[in-house]
Write a protein that binds this DNA or RNA. Structure first.
Lengths: 231, 231
DNA sequence: GAACGGAACGAACGGTGTTCGTCAACGGCA
DNA sequence: TGCCGTTGACGAACACCGTTCGTTCCGTTC
């Protein structure tokens, strides 16, 4: 005789889409590591066990959230220029889309299988490379390399922007417990002995400074230049 | 009155080095995620709380293990050729060293501050780039890019080799529960509809096949070619 | 109306990171 | 030699985690 008889919740809106969307929203807010099945279940107003009707385990749920994050990158069209311009635009959009959801990009580096939206991007990536006259073998390896670049850059940009927004917090805690990553790194570099690390010391302002967008554009240009040099 | 009076363990060899070494050994065996403070404490024959005398939290311990993994990359000497040959050798050694310790490279992508051995490699990386006539700003960004490449490639290579060794297991479980990553990816690609993903389908054997070492060398060459093209 | 199948869920299991207060051993000092 | 303060070690506990089991409830089909 349960104290509270089992009452089906008034709104039976539980669905896979709602669960994945709630998961991604929690990732945005708390980061991947802090997103637990219990928190997701709270967000959709149910218990942890109910999630397992729709998802086999936490890893799969995170992979679905990862693919959802990739859902809103639009593929470039013919109006966006030649294959190289379109490739750069595609990669930039992918980085931006992933970086907009905190550290969701980590999921893509832990060996999860790609979902349909990631596959859509991969297909277009390969198609553009091939249309640029790159050899088939080079296309395959280049897609791999660019995929690594997208995930890494999304992670890096997410850190930057997260540090930025926590810094811009107007009425934030005066004694900021969590210092910005770039600032901590900069402080570390500056504290190094110049005898042992002369080059790091000499380049310190360049290492931690600079605009994120400019850096990303430069890196991508280097990648494609390298591809063309080898062809 | 405790049943077992507090006896200082016979060998009081508890030290930070021993803890970090045990952590790295557990990472080799079980992977980063499965390494818990409790398992580490068991490996050094003590309780979980004792670790916190030497380490503030789990993240820091993993960062120390990560740096320890980077400890055994030897820096190239003048006998190894010109700056480019030495750079390629250095990067290759870094990837190999990290990949030798399972997925320890993930630690480097979660925003951990670099330890002394990582800094030593970074210093040499920057020095070699600079000695190649690359501009200071390009050096800084290139080191960033190469760092991303090292971590990503180490992770990828670790997956490959882990899949390989689990495949080569002679008397392994007949019904292999965990299939190799490359095999799963290959199966996924082959199951895709050719109308929607024509390029992926056309390049499937190239995408999942190939030698890991050759791939890594090719990618690194592309990176440096791109650097030189921009200079 | 009754029976069935699947969605939902309460409770629990074993494990996690981390903290707190206490205890034992060792150093220096009288 | 005897004592005491400091500090490393640790048992216990807290709050939480992913996941599973068995049960309950509801919509549908006979």
């Amino acid at each position: 005789m349960p104290a509270r008889p089992r009452t089906r919740s008034a709104k039976t809106t539980l669905s896979l889409d709602a669960i994945v969307a709630a998961t991604l929203a929690l990732v945005d807010e708390l980061g991947c590591e802090a997103v637990s099945m219990r928190r997701v279940s709270q967000a959709v107003q149910t218990g942890p066990a109910s999630l397992y009707v729709y998802v086999p385990d936490r890893g799969t749920l995170m992979a679905l959230a990862h693919d959802l994050a990739a859902a809103d990158v639009r593929l470039p069209t013919e109006a966006d220029g030649d294959w190289r311009a379109r490739l750069e635009l595609l990669v930039d959009r992918a980085v931006t889309a992933l970086a907009a959801h905190n550290d969701i990009a980590t999921v893509g580096m832990t060996g999860a299988l790609p979902g349909p939206h990631i596959l859509r991007i991969t297909e277009e990536l390969l198609r553009l490379l091939r249309s640029g006259g790159i050899s088939d073998a080079a296309c395959a390896w280049a897609a791999d390399l660019i995929g690594q670049y997208i995930a890494s850059s999304a992670l890096e940009e997410a850190m930057w922007s997260r540090a930025r927004q926590s810094q811009e917090r107007p009425g934030g805690s005066p004694a900021e417990a969590e210092e910005a990553f770039a600032a901590r790194l900069d402080a570390l570099y500056r504290s190094l002995p110049a005898e042992r690390y002369p080059t790091i010391r000499a380049l310190t302002p360049l290492l931690t400074g600079g605009d994120g967008v400019t850096r990303a554009a430069w890196k991508l240009r280097v990648l494609i230049d390298g591809l063309l040099a080898g062809a």
